[in-house]
């Protein structure tokens, strides 16, 4: 791992932040350890569980695999950037209302994956939602109610 430090400007949740970072530092390390934004979770640090999912230019990426240095001119969204103050986003609201979360450890990743997916697919089928979530593990819910939550949002959009 490189120990060379470099100055990088990251655009996170609409805010530009200048940071001195190790070249090998991951986005997950940067947001959690440098910026104290702990909403993105570390479930495996190996790119499998999806708890660290963030959006880079609107696309879900694994924060534990993405290098911060590669994200300097891109727009990054973490779970902290999804709600508007106390107003939850529709998918956050639906996850709470429809039991899409239990322990909540996978939830940030689920919310980000679904936010990106629903933005591109406002009227999905259940099967499409399930495929969109194929890279996010949850040990508590059995997934069913996460899909319910997404479908409720989709129905609200199309209503």
């Amino acid at each position: 791992m490189s120990t060379d430090k470099q100055v990088i400007t990251l655009n996170i949740n609409g805010e530009s932040i200048e940071l001195l970072l190790d070249g090998g530092e991951t986005l997950l390390e940067t947001v959690r350890e440098q910026l104290g934004m702990t909403g993105s979770k570390r479930g495996c640090n190996q790119g499998v569980c999806g708890a660290c999912t963030m959006l880079v230019d609107g696309e879900p990426v694994r924060g534990c695999l993405a290098l911060s240095s590669a994200c300097s001119d891109r727009s990054i969204t973490t779970i902290e950037g999804i709600a508007d103050g106390l107003n939850l986003s529709p998918i956050q609201e639906a996850m709470v209302e429809h039991g899409g979360l239990q322990c909540g450890f996978c939830t940030s990743g689920m919310v980000l994956t679904l936010s990106a997916f629903l933005a591109e697919n406002p009227k999905p089928t259940r099967e499409q939602v399930r495929h969109a979530l194929s890279g996010n593990l949850c040990r508590c819910t059995g997934y069913t109610k996460i899909v319910h939550a997404a479908m409720h949002v989709a129905e609200a959009y199309s209503a």
Binding site: M37, T38, G39, S40, T78, I79, E80, I82, A83, L88, Q92, E93, M95, V96, L101, C103, G104, T107, S108, V111
Partner: peptide, 9 residues
């Protein structure tokens, strides 16, 4: 505690 979990708080 749903809201705090849904927001990462």
């Amino acid at each position: 505690d749903g809201r705090e979990k849904a927001t990462g708080a």
